[in-house]
């Protein structure tokens, strides 16, 4: 599953850790892959020591990685090429597993599309090859102001890789409607809409994954959609 954040309105690491924690609370094991150079990174919200989560900021060759309990395994890197598949298998074979690939506009191609190498990252972390049926994919996009045409390009490129996969567009405003200037071409998009509450991100400085109904509901909703896809076997892609 991809979590894309567009614009400065939303904090990539805040959303990533909140969503990962919400999935974990529903007994799903999460491999959290953060790709981005801007601060804060997920290490801040996992309350790592400054020398720990800021180390890669000083030394670009470093990568951040570790485990949060038994439910979340994470990496944070500046480029998707630096992601490494861990030697120790995660999670145990029978546990439901979700790979959460998080990035912002910095990782996209110049035209706003997802590079093939980035789109294919989750596949590398699937346990075992030739998974049958292949794992379903999804995209959640937090579209800030001026997401417009380039943000729509991101969605189209994702669907080119994974046709008929669910796409959730998260926008502020009543009933998921876009505020003026926000979302741009998403106003006409027929996919899933997520209404972002106005008070989201009111605790940005707090050093723990954010909690609340928004993340719980979003995780539940996404799992329901993926679950129904698996039953209907309406997905494409490699395992």
């Amino acid at each position: 599953m991809h979590l894309a954040v567009w614009g400065e309105d939303y904090c990539r690491a805040y959303l990533a850790t909140g969503l990962a924690a919400a999935f974990a609370a529903q007994r799903v094991k999460v491999t959290l892959l953060e790709i981005g150079k801007s601060l804060p990174n997920i290490g801040y919200y996992f309350a790592l020591a400054p020398s720990g989560y800021l180390g890669p900021v000083v030394d670009g060759r470093m990568a951040l990685g570790g485990n949060i309990g038994r439910s979340i395994q994470y990496q944070s890197v500046g480029s998707f090429r630096k992601l490494k598949v861990p030697v120790d298998p995660f999670p145990p074979p029978r546990d439901p597993h979700l790979i959460l690939n998080v990035f912002d506009a910095y990782s996209l191609s110049e035209d706003g599309s997802i590079p093939p190498g980035l789109a294919g990252q989750p596949d590398r972390f699937l346990r075992g090859k030739n998974v049958d049926p292949p794992a379903p994919r999804g995209l959640i996009l937090f579209a800030g102001e001026r997401a417009g045409t380039r943000g729509a390009k991101l969605v189209h490129s994702f669907l080119a890789f994974h046709p008929e996969s669910p796409v959730f567009i998260a926008l502020r405003g009543a009933a998921g409607g876009a505020r003026p200037g926000e979302g741009g071409e998403f106003a006409a998009y027929q996919g899933e809409r997520v209404t972002v509450p106005e008070n989201l991100q009111q605790d940005l400085s707090r050093r723990m994954p954010p909690e609340g109904v928004f993340f719980t509901d979003l995780a539940s909703r996404f799992l329901r959609v993926l679950g129904s896809m698996k039953k209907r076997k309406i997905f494409h892609g490699t395992g």
């Binding site: 904090c11 601060l39 400054p50 020398s51 900021v57 000083v58 940005l204 400085s205």
Partner: peptide, 19 residues
Amino acid sequence: EGFFRALDMSLEHYLSARS
């Protein structure tokens, strides 16, 4: 070490102010 403390405190301050 001092650099990490300074950047960490500055980041927390920025996030608090932004919230």
